[in-house]
Amino acid sequence: MVPTNYYVILSAILFGLGVFAFVFKRNIITIFMSIELMLNAVNLAFVAFSQALGKLDGQVFVLFVIVVAAAEAAVGLGIIILIARNRQSLNVERVDLLKL
């Protein structure tokens, strides 16, 4: 039996790495992937607490988070395609004007 603390600490480490990737990376697709990494870290904490409390609510919440992440990925990648088509670049530093 693995203590719940370990899972929560791993979740915190993954979330921190996701935040760092979000701040540090410059490619818009990689930034989007770091958001997915943070969502995964939160899912791990949900499942860990669900197991610790002996209730299934956390796992149901994880399913909803995955559904929302899928919808978010579809819309976000549409936006990324639009940005790449309009700016000819995926670097977020070149996407600094509201209007072309």
Binding site: I13, L14, L17, G18, F20, A21, F24, K25, N27, I29, T30, M33, S34, L37, L90
Partner: peptide
């Protein structure tokens, strides 16, 4: 894997 996501320069490697 998470460190490699940050370390890799090419987005496909990050993926």
């Amino acid at each position: 894997g998470a460190l490699s996501l940050i370390w890799q320069k090419h987005p496909i490697h990050s993926a």
